[in-house]
Amino acid sequence: MSKQIEIRIAGKGGQGILTSGYILGNAFALLEGKNVAQTQSYGPEARGGASKTDLIISDEVIYYTKVRKANYLILLSEEATSRYLDDLTSSGTLIIDSSIHFEPRKEGTVFKSNFAKIAREELKNPIATNLLMLGYFCAISDLLKPDSIKTVISEHFRKRFEEANLKAFDRGFEEGKKALKK
C-alpha cells in the first residue's frame, strides 16, 4: 500500500456499522501493522438514525484524521446513500446493498450485493449483516488478509456467537470473490 486509503462505511443504527469500523480498524492496525485513524458518528445520530464510520489506513503517519474523499464507500441504507454518495473519489469503489436505489455513477466501480437479505433469509442471522459486508469488502479490496479480520471477530464477540459470526464473514467473502469473477 503506497498511499493513504480512505474508507467510509455508512448505514442506519442497529446495522452494526460502528462495530464493523472497529473490527476493520483493529485488523488493519494490530494484525496488518498499518497506521489507522478510525472515527465514527456519535450521539443521537448514532442510535436509530444514520450511522457512519470512517477509516484512514496508511503505512505513513496519519495526520489529518477525517475522510475527505473515500476510496471505498460502503452503503447499507437509503438515507446513508443520499447523504454520502458524493463523498467517493471519482475512481473509487462503491459497495452497496442491492435493495438501495441510487443514481448510477459515471466513473469508478460499483459492487452490489444482497447483504441484508442473505443475512436475514439464508443465514437467519440479520445482525450479522455487517460481518457479511466485511467479508465482501475484504475480498473486493484485497487490502488485508481475511484471517486478520477473522481473528478480531473471534476476539471481539462472545464465544457462543463465534461460529455464526465467522460463517457470516466467510459467506460475504465468498460473495465478494464471485462478484470479482463477473
Binding site: G25, N35, V36, A37, Q38, Q40, I62
Partner: peptide, 8 residues
Amino acid sequence: IIGHLREK
C-alpha cells in the same frame, strides 16, 4: 476529535 479518535 482526539477523545473519539481510535488509533494504534
